[in-house]
Simulated assay, not measured.
Amino acid sequence: MIKIAIVGYGNIGRYAVDAIRAAEDMELAGIVRRPGSAPVHGIKTVASIEELGHVDVALLCTPTRSVEATALPLLEQGINTVDSFDIHDQIVNLRRSLGDKAIKHDAVSVISAGWDPGTDSAIRTMMMAMAPKGITYTNFGPGMSMGHSVVARSKEGVADALSLTIPTGSGVHRRMVYVVVKDGFQFSDVEAAIKSDSYFCHDETHVIQVPDIDSLRDMGHGVLMERKGVSGGTQNQMLKFEMRINNPALTAQVMVASARASTRIPSGCYTLPEIAPMDFLPGDREDLVARLV
Rank of each mutant, 00 (worst) to 15 (best):
Asp106Ala: 14
Ile135Phe: 05
Met255Thr: 04
Trp115Gln: 00
Leu59Cys: 11
Asn93Trp: 12
Gly220Glu: 06
Met144Thr: 11
Asp212Trp: 07
Val82Asn: 01
Asp116Ile: 06
Leu28Arg: 01
Val158Asp: 05
Leu74His: 12
Thr205Lys: 01
Pro266Gln: 03
Ser154Glu: 00
Leu72Glu: 10
Met127Asn: 10
Ala5Gln: 08
Ile166Ala: 14
Glu156Leu: 06
Gln90Thr: 05
Leu281Ala: 09
Gln77Trp: 15
Gln90Phe: 13
Glu274Tyr: 02
Asp203Cys: 03
Asp89Gln: 08
Asp284Val: 07
Asp25Val: 14
Arg34Ala: 14
Gly13Trp: 03
Pro282Cys: 02
Ile31Gln: 04
Ala47Leu: 08
Leu60Val: 05
Pro211Leu: 05
Ile275Ala: 01
Pro73Cys: 07
Ala71Arg: 01
Leu60Ser: 12
Tyr178Val: 02
Leu94Met: 01
Asp183Met: 05
Tyr137Ser: 15
Asp214Gly: 09
Gly99Met: 04
Glu191Asp: 08
Pro73Glu: 09
Val293Met: 14
Tyr15Pro: 03
Ser188Pro: 02
Glu191Gln: 08
Thr62Cys: 09
Gly143Leu: 08
Ile103Leu: 07
Val158Phe: 08
Val179His: 00
Arg264Ile: 04
Arg175Cys: 09
Val179Ser: 00
Leu250Lys: 08
Ser154Ile: 03
Thr136Tyr: 13
Leu94Ser: 02
Ser145Ile: 02
Arg174Ser: 15
Gly30Asn: 07
Ala131Cys: 13
Asn139Pro: 07
Phe187Thr: 02
Arg217Gly: 12
Val40Trp: 08
Arg217Leu: 10
Ser97Phe: 05
Gly8Met: 04
Glu51Ser: 11
Ser145Gly: 08
Glu50Cys: 03
Ala159Trp: 07
Lys195Val: 06
Arg244Asn: 15
Ser215Asp: 11
Ile79Asp: 00
Arg96Asp: 15
Ala102Phe: 05
Gly147Tyr: 01
Asp218Lys: 10
Gly268Met: 00
Leu292Asn: 11
